[in-house]
Deep mutational scan, measured.
Amino acid sequence: AEKTGIVNVSSSLNAREGASTSSKVIGSLSGNTKVTIVGEEGAFYKIEYKGSHGYVAKEYIKDIKDE
């Protein structure tokens, strides 16, 4: 099942092309942005936001229960 997560940073969080800190940054998400978690790979979540996919470090995403 898809989960919703909240970007848990004070400034912004980089979204990357792949599940690695050396992957190209494809965008950034500001704190408290809601994202859909579609998968996980190592220390990263694969997320969907406004129709695009990217990878973000798990430690900066807070899971919330689907309402």
Score class of each variant (00 low, 15 high):
1 A>F: 14
1 A>D: 08
2 E>P: 15
2 E>W: 15
2 E>R: 15
3 K>R: 14
3 K>Q: 07
3 K>M: 10
3 K>N: 04
3 K>F: 09
4 T>F: 14
4 T>K: 08
4 T>E: 06
4 T>Y: 14
5 G>K: 04
5 G>L: 04
5 G>R: 04
5 G>P: 02
6 I>F: 10
6 I>A: 03
6 I>N: 04
6 I>M: 07
7 V>H: 02
7 V>F: 03
7 V>M: 05
7 V>N: 02
7 V>Y: 03
8 N>G: 08
8 N>C: 15
8 N>I: 12
9 V>E: 05
9 V>R: 07
9 V>D: 05
9 V>P: 07
9 V>C: 15
10 S>M: 12
10 S>I: 11
10 S>L: 12
10 S>H: 12
10 S>Q: 11
10 S>F: 10
11 S>L: 09
11 S>T: 14
11 S>D: 12
11 S>E: 10
12 S>C: 15
12 S>D: 07
12 S>K: 12
13 L>D: 01
13 L>A: 11
13 L>I: 15
13 L>C: 15
14 N>A: 14
14 N>E: 15
14 N>S: 12
14 N>D: 14
14 N>I: 15
14 N>H: 13
15 A>L: 15
15 A>I: 15
16 R>V: 06
16 R>Q: 07
16 R>K: 05
16 R>I: 04
16 R>W: 15
16 R>F: 15
17 E>T: 06
17 E>D: 09
17 E>H: 06
17 E>I: 08
17 E>G: 06
17 E>V: 08
19 A>N: 04
19 A>I: 07
19 A>Q: 03
19 A>C: 07
20 S>G: 05
20 S>M: 06
21 T>F: 15
21 T>H: 14
21 T>A: 13
22 S>Q: 11
22 S>T: 12
22 S>G: 10
22 S>I: 08
23 S>N: 04
23 S>E: 03
23 S>T: 06
23 S>Y: 07
24 K>I: 07
25 V>E: 04
25 V>L: 06
25 V>D: 02
25 V>T: 06
26 I>N: 02
26 I>V: 07
26 I>S: 03
26 I>L: 10
26 I>D: 01
27 G>C: 11
27 G>S: 04
27 G>W: 14
27 G>Y: 14
28 S>M: 12
28 S>W: 13
28 S>H: 10
28 S>L: 12
28 S>C: 14
29 L>W: 04
29 L>F: 05
29 L>M: 05
29 L>Q: 01
29 L>D: 01
30 S>P: 15
30 S>I: 12
30 S>R: 14
30 S>N: 10
31 G>Q: 11
32 N>P: 04
33 T>K: 04
33 T>L: 06
34 K>R: 13
34 K>D: 02
34 K>T: 09
35 V>G: 01
35 V>Y: 04
35 V>E: 00
36 T>F: 12
36 T>E: 03
36 T>D: 05
36 T>I: 13
36 T>P: 01
37 I>K: 00
37 I>A: 01
38 V>S: 02
39 G>S: 06
39 G>P: 00
39 G>H: 02
40 E>D: 06
40 E>M: 07
40 E>K: 03
41 E>Q: 08
41 E>W: 07
41 E>K: 07
42 G>L: 03
42 G>P: 00
43 A>V: 08
43 A>Q: 10
43 A>L: 11
44 F>Q: 01
45 Y>P: 01
45 Y>S: 01
46 K>D: 02
46 K>I: 14
46 K>W: 06
46 K>Q: 06
47 I>G: 01
47 I>A: 01
47 I>D: 00
48 E>V: 14
48 E>W: 13
48 E>N: 10
49 Y>D: 01
49 Y>V: 04
49 Y>E: 00
50 K>G: 11
50 K>E: 11
50 K>V: 05
51 G>Y: 04
51 G>M: 05
51 G>Q: 06
52 S>W: 14
52 S>L: 14
53 H>D: 03
53 H>K: 05
54 G>T: 04
54 G>I: 09
54 G>E: 01
54 G>Q: 03
54 G>W: 13
54 G>D: 00
55 Y>C: 03
55 Y>N: 00
55 Y>L: 02
56 V>G: 00
56 V>P: 00
57 A>R: 12
57 A>I: 10
59 E>V: 11
59 E>W: 08
60 Y>W: 08
60 Y>P: 01
60 Y>M: 07
61 I>R: 03
61 I>P: 00
62 K>C: 11
62 K>A: 10
62 K>S: 13
63 D>C: 15
64 I>E: 06
64 I>A: 08
64 I>F: 08
64 I>P: 06
64 I>Q: 06
65 K>F: 12
65 K>Y: 10
65 K>H: 11
65 K>A: 10
67 E>W: 12
67 E>I: 14
67 E>T: 13
